[in-house]
């Protein structure tokens, strides 16, 4: 999937995260802010990259503001943001 425009999904409430994706020229750029970065930074990174891979996103600038979301929540927010970045009516 190609990131056509900037889009975000999620919230900054506890146990949620806000994921913003932006178009990027060639690669995946990932930035993570998290209240549990020292304990779960690697898990979060892994979940985001895996989700992008499953959606066939090869180039994107991704920013995650995490408030202690579980992997299933992070994956959901990444997927929703990517789908929203598809342009008009661009689901699937």
């Amino acid at each position: 999937m190609h990131i056509e425009k900037t889009a975000a999904a999620g919230t900054l409430e506890s146990s949620d995260c806000l994921v913003t994706v932006e178009p990027s020229a060639s690669e995946i750029k990932l930035e993570i802010e998290s209240v549990v970065l020292s304990q779960y930074g690697e898990e979060i990174r892994g979940t985001v990259l895996e989700t992008l891979k499953s959606l066939h996103v090869q180039a994107a600038s991704v920013h995650v503001q995490d408030k202690g979301a579980l992997n299933c929540v992070i994956a959901a927010r990444v997927e929703a943001a990517v789908l929203r970045a598809q342009g008009e009516g661009g689901q699937e």
Binding site: V36, S38, Q39, Y40, G41, E42, E43, L70, N71
Partner: peptide
């Protein structure tokens, strides 16, 4: 099981 095992802190 829900959260994963936390990495040790500094």
């Amino acid at each position: 099981e829900m959260s994963g095992i936390p990495a040790p802190i500094f």
